[in-house]
Nucleic acid binder design. Structure first.
Length: 238
DNA sequence: AGGCCGATCCTCT
DNA sequence: GAGGATCGGCCTA
């Protein structure tokens, strides 16, 4: 398993604060077929109903329901829901118990298990690419900008439902899972990667509260989803 | 590069 | 009964 487990305290903070810091962390899935892992390169924050700003795009904005109850529980757990009858999206719960702030994972850079990702995504034409790629064979410490920029790499896990499909994340198997437990099949880990330039923009694909600047991505990273031309502003981390 | 469309079904009102 | 934190295919330019 690459890197080290992230701490609970990291996620027990205000969601707007945690979201940009989550960029660069690893989402790791231990499966029978082997370890599948990706680096978080794009996220969106969703505000709980306790927040001063009402976020009508958040699933929690009218309070707890059977679907969203995980959001009101402790930080560092997976909230996985199904959408459009055919896909899943995954969030990570933040803030103390009772506060429903969460972070939607929107895109990963494939790091380990690229061949399994291609199979899970039903992209058989990408199997040769995944086998050829160093990272796919598991010795993947090296960062290769050209590879991260390739259409093949982007096709694997750029998009909230694509990344769930690539890692094999489903609601029945993973909703409510503790991502910070060494026993869990699904974990968030830190391998020392530090984000330098983070772009902040409006969130994608929502009707309500569409103007809030709550989408965060690694600046100029080839695996970020959505339009290539981006507005918003860039924040430099030291 | 960007816009429109249909698939498909769960959730909440 | 309506709508949705999407995706992939197909269209125009």
């Amino acid at each position: 398993m690459p890197g080290r487990l992230v701490t609970r305290a990291f996620f027990e903070d205000a969601v707007e604060h945690v979201a940009p810091r989550l960029l660069g962390k690893l989402l790791v899935h231990r499966t029978r077929a082997g370890v599948i892992a990706g680096r978080v390169v794009e996220v969106e924050a969703y505000l709980g109903p306790h927040h001063a700003t009402l976020d009508r795009a958040a699933h929690s904005h009218r309070g707890p329901t059977p679907r969203n109850q995980v959001l009101f529980g402790p930080a560092g757990h997976a909230y996985v829901y199904s959408i459009y009858g055919m896909y899943f999206c995954m969030n990570i719960t933040c803030e103390p118990t009772g506060h429903a702030g969460c972070i939607l994972l929107r895109a990963l850079e494939p790091v380990l298990g690229l061949e399994q990702m291609a199979r899970n995504r039903l992209l058989d034409r990408l199997l040769p690419f995944a086998q050829r790629t160093r990272k796919g064979r598991g010795n993947g410490e090296e960062e290769n900008g050209a590879l991260a920029n390739s259409n093949e790499m982007r096709a694997l896990a750029s998009g909230p439902s694509r990344l769930c499909q690539a890692l094999g994340i489903t609601r029945t198997a993973h909703n409510g899972v503790d991502l910070l437990d060494a026993q869990s099949a699904l974990q968030v880990r830190d391998d020392g990667f530090r984000a330098e330039r983070v772009r902040v923009t409006a969130r994608i694909g929502i009707r309500h509260a569409a103007e809030l600047p709550l989408r965060f991505c690694l600046e100029k990273h080839g695996c970020v989803s959505g339009p290539k031309k981006m507005s918003g502003r860039v924040v430099v981390f030291e």
